[in-house]
């Protein structure tokens, strides 16, 4: 019998499944309770709670955050995973403090989305899908954000920036770098 597993192989003691569970302040707990109160079934609050955990855990669902959610909602870790990976706004990997999400769908595309992305790349030195080394910026191309009449546009965190021009993008990035702009995470 061939086998890669033998009792003699030293066993690394750590599994990737989180042992540690995140803890949150009473205010954050209360915020979650308000969401949970809306539904007859706890699991329904999974997305609102994911947004909160993601916000509190530095922008993404880290393993303790995932463990927290599973515990809080009374579901399995894998249930959290299957949902988290389905929705594009839930991050399972770290993202930059400012997450620039440029809409690339048709209306924005024909109104100059390409220029917006190019400008961001030029300023930040990152391509869509990348994060700056200092962890300040992530750049993504996303699908239609319902701003087609004010195209081209991008979203930073939850905030909309519309009718973008090169100058506006410059200004926005300057402000981010100066810390004068909210990162739109709520």
């Amino acid at each position: 019998m061939s086998s890669q597993f033998t009792p003699n192989n030293p066993l690394p003691q750590e599994a990737k499944v989180p042992q540690e569970i995140a803890v949150f302040s009473p205010e954050v707990e209360a915020e979650m309770d308000r969401h949970l109160a809306k539904y007859p079934v706890k699991r329904s609050a999974i997305l609102p709670l994911m947004f909160i955990v993601q916000r509190e855990r530095g922008g993404y669902l880290d393993p303790p955050g995932v463990a927290y959610l599973a515990d809080r909602l009374g579901v399995r870790i894998t249930d959290i995973w299957e949902v988290a990976t389905f929705y594009s706004m839930i991050n399972t990997e770290p993202v930059g403090k400012y997450h620039l999400q440029v809409c690339k769908t048709l209306s924005c595309k024909i109104m100059g989305a390409g220029r917006v992305t190019a400008k961001c790349t030029e300023r930040l030195g990152i391509k869509p899908g990348q994060t700056t080394e200092d962890g300040m910026f992530s750049l993504s191309e996303v699908e239609c954000l319902g701003s087609c009449g004010t195209a081209p546009m991008m979203q930073i965190g939850f905030d909309y920036y519309e009718n973008l021009t090169d100058e506006k993008v410059d200004e926005i990035i300057n402000k981010c770098q100066g810390g004068e702009l909210s990162n739109g995470v709520r």
């Binding site: 192989n9 690394p12 003691q13 750590e14």
Partner: peptide, 10 residues
């Protein structure tokens, strides 16, 4: 039996 740890090597 040892708790199903994930061995890096495999």
């Amino acid at each position: 039996a040892a708790g199903n740890p994930e061995p890096e090597s495999v």
